[in-house]
Computed example of a mutant assay.
Amino acid sequence: MICVKVPATSANCCVGFDTLGMALDWFATFYFEPNPEFVIEGCPDEFKNEDNLVIVGFKKTCDYMKVDMPTLKLKIDTDIPSSRGLGSSSTCIVAGIMAADAWFHGQLNKMEMLKIATEIEGHPDNVAPAIFGQACTSFMDDGDVRMMMIPCQNFKGLAMIPDYPIQTSEARKVLPQTIDYKDAVKQVGYALSFVQCLSSGNELIFPKTCHDFLHEPYRCKLIKEYAEIHDYCKSIDLAMWISGSGSTMLAMSLDEKKLDMLQEWIVKYCGMSYKKVSISTKGAYIEYE
């Protein structure tokens, strides 16, 4: 049996719209074994077919390696919520790719896996950290994926998870077609500083960098709890952003006391689900059972 473990991810990271993502130490687990017939367990009935993203990733990897798709049993074990901005679809895609590679005895390197995952997902900002771990910057260059890992300090986080989903397609509809030139300049400064703060652990500047012009001012209106949580985080100088396209929000700090304060405030005033997380140094990996 092949077991693949894939981390949840937080894309955009506020100022890194479509280019920056980080792996979280919150893993989904996928089990693969030979089977006379095609079977999927551990997901809603509507995903128990060949359109399941795990199977899509597996089959596309087989096509890439020019081997036949085997019949198999897939079991999914995850509590990463879907359509909440935590990379649930990326965990499925990456799991399928890594399982197919392991099934046929490891022919691919991680950049090849990233290429396949990006072709399925459409962009690399979630799948890159899911494969490599840490935080990753990425972009497309004439159809080729380019990425760099960002070594991160030991940041801790609190994922705040509303009880409603936001579809990425809907979240993209609220975005503007253009932004002011002066705002674009500011965005570059904030994004470059954000990355440096992750690497250096500069807590003085880190919360100040979380000032986005590209998506959060528009998507925040889809998350009814955002304004209050944002204001509270700002009052205690705590970095916070919308994870992916939402509805999850993520706060991060080296100071766990601030995160404890936020957690107590969430319990008292918001009553939503939450989970303590940290940046995972490890991307997806294989275990054999």
Rank of each mutant, 00 (worst) to 15 (best):
G143Y: 06
G16T: 07
H105P: 00
N12P: 00
G21D: 01
I229C: 04
D68F: 04
M272F: 09
H230P: 00
L72K: 01
A184R: 11
S245E: 02
Y218G: 05
V15D: 00
M240A: 04
S247M: 08
H230D: 12
E216T: 04
N12L: 04
L20V: 10
G157E: 01
K173P: 04
L262Q: 02
P44N: 09
D141S: 13
A135S: 11
Q153D: 13
C270Y: 10
F17Q: 08
K282M: 11
M272V: 14
I236D: 02
A159F: 03
K173L: 14
A100C: 14
C3H: 13
H105C: 10
L53V: 03
F47Y: 15
I116H: 00
V4F: 00
F30R: 01
S89D: 15
F17E: 10
C14K: 00
T61P: 08
K186G: 01
S169Y: 10
V67F: 10
D212I: 11
V174A: 06
F132I: 12
C92W: 01
P129M: 02
E203I: 02
D25K: 13
L24I: 12
K257C: 11
L20Q: 07
Y218F: 15
E228Y: 14
K258E: 06
I2D: 05
H211A: 13
T29Y: 08
L214N: 07
H215W: 07
M147C: 12
K75T: 14
A11Y: 00
D231C: 08
K186M: 09
K75R: 13
L214G: 05
V67A: 05
D163N: 15
I55G: 05
H123I: 13
V54D: 01
G85L: 02
I131F: 07
V15R: 05
I286Y: 04
E112F: 06
K110T: 05
